[in-house]
Amino acid sequence: MTATTTTVPVPDGPDRVEVALRALTVDGVELNVATAGAGPAVLLLHGFPHTWRLWSRVIGELARRYRVIAPDLRGFGDSARPAGGYDAGTLAADAEGLLAALGETSAAVVGIDIGAPPAFLLAMRRPDLVRRLVLMESLLGTLPGAEDFLAGGPPWWFGFHAEPGLAESVLVGHEERYVEWFLDRGTLGRGVRDDDVRDRIVRTYTGTEALRGAFGPYRALAETGRQIAAALDRGRLTVPTLTIGAHPVGRALERQLGPYADDLTGHVIPDCGHIIPLDRPAALLALLGPHLTEKHEV
């Protein structure tokens, strides 16, 4: 493990919280990791097109009670961009290794979008490590329950991103416009309120290699689907789990997990876009609070 530390201010309503940024090498891959606060660990796994700064508007409140750990996934943000390892199983192993490198033996794990499948697989593999699980605005492979969401076919960008070499070859020079389309759509047109957060996210998606890394999970979707099915063939999801939907996924993930989870609670946040932590942080915190602080979690 190698580490360097700096501090950066992160907006959190009228206040600011200091976040330590460090580079940790996990299984040969250098990951950029933001940490804040002290207490039981809460691991936050972002999606596309995000970085750890997706959580900027909730880190401050969470850090009052928890040690918040928010990495850039491999291939994203300021983490390394290896040639492979973008399936959810490998991303879950990255998360497990990161917790070990930080000395954590128990964590609540929160995943959104493409961060949700690795969060799920980590909970399936290590229920002794994952004390609580939160999955947001995502689907889990081809499990039944998402038929309504997929009635018109999967989102168009899934195929575009999944074709090796294609998307990065046509998007170079237009990254800002492309990423901001997702940020605007994911907030129902309200946009990202903090210009610095938006600009820093866009910066890390600039260039062929940055785009190629970000599209890695889409190119591994088939393998991820097989991993999810295999995990559920071996057993049930026993970790207490909260699913949170918004627009457009809604309750699809809750329906997918229902037959396989021993302890599942589902919520949908009204008038909320896909990028829940930036669009409706107060509503998200109101749901996370009770789930993360259940008396039997420690």
Rank of each mutant, 00 (worst) to 15 (best):
A210R: 10
A210S: 12
E18L: 15
R200L: 01
P164G: 14
F120G: 03
A70G: 02
R81N: 12
D78P: 03
M124R: 15
A100M: 06
A230H: 13
Y205S: 05
L292F: 12
A252D: 05
L21Y: 07
E168A: 15
D78K: 09
G216K: 13
L99W: 05
G145M: 02
D94T: 07
M124N: 04
R198F: 10
G216P: 08
L102T: 08
M1F: 13
L278F: 03
Q227K: 05
W156D: 06
G97C: 12
A100W: 03
I275R: 00
T25F: 03
P164T: 15
R198W: 09
E180T: 14
P277R: 04
T7I: 09
A93R: 15
P259T: 10
D279W: 00
E104T: 06
A3G: 09
G153C: 10
R53S: 04
A83Y: 09
L287W: 04
G39N: 09
L121A: 04
E163Q: 14
T2V: 14
L288D: 02
P154L: 09
T204P: 00
T5S: 15
V110F: 08
W156Q: 06
A214E: 11
G47F: 05
V19R: 01
A107F: 04
F120H: 05
L150A: 08
V58R: 01
T187A: 01
V298H: 13
D27F: 10
G189Y: 03
D113E: 15
T25D: 10
M1D: 12
T90S: 10
F48M: 06
L232S: 02
S106D: 14
N32Y: 08
T206S: 11
A229G: 09
G141S: 06
M136H: 02
G235I: 01
D271I: 11
F182H: 15
V58G: 00
R219N: 08
E168D: 14
E147F: 10
L232W: 05
G39V: 06
A220C: 05
R212I: 03
V239E: 01
A119C: 07
P127C: 11
G75Y: 07
W181N: 12
D27T: 13
A70T: 02
L45I: 11
T206H: 05
W157Q: 08
L44C: 11
H291F: 14
S169Y: 08
G245Q: 02
A38K: 14
R22E: 11
A83R: 14
H174K: 14
F160V: 10
T265P: 01
L188W: 00
V10F: 11
H247E: 14
G153W: 11
